[in-house]
């Protein structure tokens, strides 16, 4: 490679208009690495309520692992195998803990009014994650291939049909529900969760409501 070739590949000021350069610059401006992976937190982040966000993500990781095993083994595996029943139990209790953690996290953030300081998008992505979680859990209950699943399918169809959703979302169609539960919703939930966490890191943890005493609220 000649010196001339090297010079021709050196970025010029005009290159900052490249889409890639713009994306990189925007990322570095909004979320530098020390914000993404901080080693300090504001002093007010000193309550057990703050651990429920990361506990929710931890439970989500567990659910994904047990769900992956169940997906490979098939929906009827756990009816006939003790190992299958154990993996199903891991999935079941993972979901139960996930929701306990998530609901405590949600209400904790509500009572902190955690949307203050341009954090509305953080709150809304959290709520979308909550709704996506409900949808994921609901479709999971529909593919249990047991009596509970039969009853839930029978009951739920009426609610969805009543408002027209049943025309394209069919709780009684296990093929459709299986794909939505295994392929679509975990992906949606994962993407929303990443967005939510990145927003938390970008804006930081909301200050206490009374943290600015010299100014009238």
């Amino acid at each position: 490679m000649t010196t001339q070739n090297l010079e021709s590949e050196t970025p010029t000021p005009e290159d900052s208009k490249m889409w890639t350069a713009r994306l990189r610059n925007a990322w570095q401006r909004n979320l530098p690495i020390d914000k993404l992976l901080p080693d300090t937190q504001p002093a007010y982040v000193a309550s057990w309520i703050y651990v429920f966000g990361v506990l929710t993500i931890a439970a989500f990781v567990d659910i994904l692992i047990s769900g992956l095993i169940l997906a490979f083994a098939g929906p009827a595996w756990y009816h006939t195998s003790s190992l299958g029943l154990f993996v199903n139990s891991l999935h079941f209790w993972g979901v139960q803990l996930f929701f306990v953690f998530m609901v405590v996290h949600l209400w904790g953030k509500f009572w902190m009014a955690a949307w203050r300081g341009r954090r509305t998008a953080t709150w809304i992505t959290g709520m979308v994650a909550f709704l996506a979680s409900i949808g994921t859990a609901f479709t999971g209950y529909l593919i249990q291939t047991n009596f509970d699943a039969q009853w839930i399918a029978f009951e739920a169809k009426d609610g969805f049909n009543a408002v027209g959703i049943g025309a394209f979302f069919t709780p009684t169609n296990i093929g459709q529900i299986m794909l939505i539960h295994v392929a679509l919703l975990p992906l949606v939930l994962g993407v929303i969760t990443v967005m939510h966490v990145l927003l938390v890191r970008k804006h930081g943890v909301v200050p206490p409501i009374d943290a600015l005493p010299e100014i009238e609220a």
Partner: peptide, 14 residues
């Protein structure tokens, strides 16, 4: 104030 980066006391966080 709520939107600005925190400038008060901090604690270690891993």
């Amino acid at each position: 104030f709520d939107a600005a980066p925190w400038t008060g006391r901090v604690r270690k966080y891993d």
